[in-house]
């Protein structure tokens, strides 16, 4: 059963930030509640005060310019991302990932910031956004700060948010030319959370050599993991089967997966190896423009 709480509904972002400053660790923020309500019902999260930011339409936006890149407000729903024509054009990987996230009902009501702030390492958005070089803007009455998303996750369901901060915006830099992103999560049922997931962003130079690569592993540790050793294997090299196998093995070695009822640690490492190979290969092929 959900513990009784004082319900606060700020009308503006500033009001919300003031409330956070006032209540600090005694309050929790709810937007869509698609993650939060479950844990509140189970008694895993108990709060005396709930600040409801679902109505803050000023935080619901998707904007883009070639200089700054992509800006998405915190209360933007998954469904808005999934249906965005702008994103389909500029960041099709985000549309593709959203299509397979949870269910339509959850995407209709849940927000991207809520998903990211929940800190579930089996989430799909975080690995993909990290692969895109994404950043997250945190706000408080003291002002705002922008943190690279890969530094945002500090532990199991733990983020860099301080007690008086909330997520206000997600930022993604413009995509470099000759870049492609691929993401796959492994699951038994479509749209189920991934047993593991791998995101790969590949940028190639004029000779199709790997100029820049980011490989991010989901549900392979307590936080999303940048597979830097795997990236090192690829940088400056031309694509090839043996190279991709090496990258896969490196990623599998860097991962810190658990054993649970769905998969053993060895099998997760095996999947990471296979998926890394596949995603890097896919991203590499897509990054090379058709002549």
């Amino acid at each position: 059963m959900i513990h009784d709480f004082r319900y606060l509904k700020p009308g503006t972002l500033q009001e919300a930030l003031s409330m956070l400053a006032e209540w600090r660790d005694e309050c929790k923020i709810i937007c869509g509640g698609q993650s939060l309500l479950i844990v509140m019902r189970q008694g895993l999260v108990v709060t005396d005060t709930l600040v409801d930011i679902k109505g803050l339409n000023e935080l619901s936006y998707i904007t883009y310019d070639d200089g700054e890149g992509l800006r998405m407000g915190a209360t933007t729903t998954h469904r808005a991302v999934e249906k965005s024509g702008l994103l389909k054009e500029k960041y099709p990987i985000l549309v593709a990932v959203e299509k397979k996230l949870a269910s339509i009902q959850v995407r209709n009501w849940g927000s991207i910031a809520g998903n990211l702030a929940h800190g579930d390492s089996s989430g799909d958005l975080a690995p993909v956004l990290i692969a895109l070089g994404g950043k997250i803007k945190l706000g408080s009455v003291k002002g705002t700060r922008v943190v690279p998303l890969e530094e945002f996750y500090t532990g199991l369901f733990e983020t860099a948010l301080t007690k008086d901060e909330m997520v206000v915006e997600v930022q993604v830099p413009p995509v470099q030319p000759r870049t492609a992103v691929a993401y796959k999560k492994f699951n038994l049922i479509e749209s189920d959370q991934g047993i593991v997931g791998v995101a790969a962003a590949m940028t190639v130079d004029a000779s199709d050599t790997c100029k820049d690569v980011r490989i991010v592993l989901g549900n392979s540790g307590v936080t999303p993991i940048r597979a830097r050793s795997a990236e090192k294997v690829l940088l400056g090299r031309k694509s090839g089967d043996r190279l991709l196998e090496e990258a896969g093995e490196a990623a599998a070695g860097e991962a810190d997966p658990v054993s649970d009822i769905h998969a053993s640690e060895e099998y997760r490492r095996h999947l990471i190896r296979v998926l890394t190979e596949r995603m890097v290969r896919q991203a590499w092929e897509k990054a090379i423009p058709l002549e």
Binding site: G33, L37, R79, S103, I104, Q105, V106, N108
Partner: peptide, 13 residues
């Protein structure tokens, strides 16, 4: 116009 799971929505919203 949206399908939502009403068990995951606070009525006040």
């Amino acid at each position: 116009d949206m399908a939502v799971k009403s068990c995951a929505v606070l009525a006040v919203q």
